[in-house]
Design a protein around this nucleic acid. Sequence first.
DNA 1: AGACCGTACCGTACACCGTACGGCTCAGCT
DNA 2: AGCTGAGCCGTACGGTGTACGGTACGGTCT
Lengths: 256, 256
Amino acid sequence: MSAKKASDADPARSLALLWGSHSKPGRSGLTVRSIVLAAVELANAEGLEAVSMRQVAERLGVGTMSLYTHVPGKGELVDLMVDTAYGELYDDVDAPSRQPGGWRGALEFVAARNWDLYRRNPWMLQVIDARSTLGPNASLKYEAELRPLDGVGLTDVEMDSVLALVLSHVQSTARTAANQARVQEESGMTDVEWWVSNAPLLDKIMDGTRFPVASRVGQAAGEAHQAISDPAHALTFGLDRILAGIAALIAGRNRS
Amino acid sequence: MSAKKASDADPARSLALLWGSHSKPGRSGLTVRSIVLAAVELANAEGLEAVSMRQVAERLGVGTMSLYTHVPGKGELVDLMVDTAYGELYDDVDAPSRQPGGWRGALEFVAARNWDLYRRNPWMLQVIDARSTLGPNASLKYEAELRPLDGVGLTDVEMDSVLALVLSHVQSTARTAANQARVQEESGMTDVEWWVSNAPLLDKIMDGTRFPVASRVGQAAGEAHQAISDPAHALTFGLDRILAGIAALIAGRNRS
DNA sequence: AGACCGTACCGTACACCGTACGGCTCAGCT
DNA sequence: AGCTGAGCCGTACGGTGTACGGTACGGTCT
């Protein structure tokens, strides 16, 4: 009944690896660090689905099973990949706080940095949803992103909620963008090309009789964005609304 | 170079299946409909990863390869599953428009219905990100959700952006909730249990010296939600901010 | 009634995945 | 010089999607 499904990471093992000091070069140059780096490179070059133990090993010129001497399993390896990627985010823990524009400028900076992170490492979006084993870089990220919200009039719980909302928006938009890019790459067709090629069929489907508003709005949005969806626009549009909503909350807190 | 990666759906085939009238009972009772239904049941009962061609076939008391007579491949099957699930959403195309509270009440209704959809069919969250082949039910959904936004002062493009923002928020929150539930189920531990059991280690990590704000806020949020994150709270908190931001936009449009 | 044929059905096979197990090789210490 | 323990890895198992080729049956025409 308590099935251990498949390649799930053991949180305790991951934590130990994440915070431990692994510096045993071995006799064929294999290290936890080198394995994780190879896996990340592979993920960015050929997508997360290409990250198999066999492929990572091959990239390192090493037998598949050798990896298991340094890493308990694939799940833990993925946890390590995530924290490594988080390391790119901020130069130091006060980078967001240093931004001009107060909490608003800081949140815009945080959103932009996270957006860049996901654009550079699209594989994270397929992985984050699994769990969040908090390694050193993830912890630093949390601290760095919370600091500019400290002392603006929000409660501690509200600070967490506000940050979570902004991050959730960025992640969701980045996911859409990544999927769109992937589909285009796989099909070799841009959104526009796909749309015009399937237009006759879609016209029959989306006839203005049954779906008047949808066909009108879909048409307008499609022409405006030259695509089914425009992630960059969705990012700024959504962020603007969200920040306005947050500003109202803060104003209310400070007024009372 | 133009690699067909794995089990990706061919959009054209999916569209044909989605809109076509497939009603050929075959000689062992096998139908596109029955296959899709079995797959959805399986996904809800044992998770999306349990939906393999073999398992679906077994559930139907049929050989694995027999499915391929009715469905081109797994990708297309998943597309069919998604549109089937969308069928649960609204009784008719004017259900959201009938809600009290104007556009705001309608959007809250839309958010609630989509939230329920994802809670009932968590597998959709692992699938949606793949692509969005628009079947009949998806089209009806789009129309139903846009109608209450028609004539409130937004441009057509803004209507699309506003709806996308709300749906994106719900989906993102539902994803977090589903992952949390899955982790708890797999580990047999609630968030609280996990937290207290890993507390000593986490205390050493999140010491108030290096991460003062994070440890303080994390503590407060954890105690308030009795979990690492509280999806239900995140849903309403975020929706409130977003709707406030949208209200500001609409007010600006109507003032000018 | 008998023959035919298209389609539904399915058994087998292939290439991939994660990883358990057991054996080999060699660095470093005694 | 000899031993030991750790690094390394070849093989094997059960899972995946699906290509291929063969079987068996329902409906139609003679």
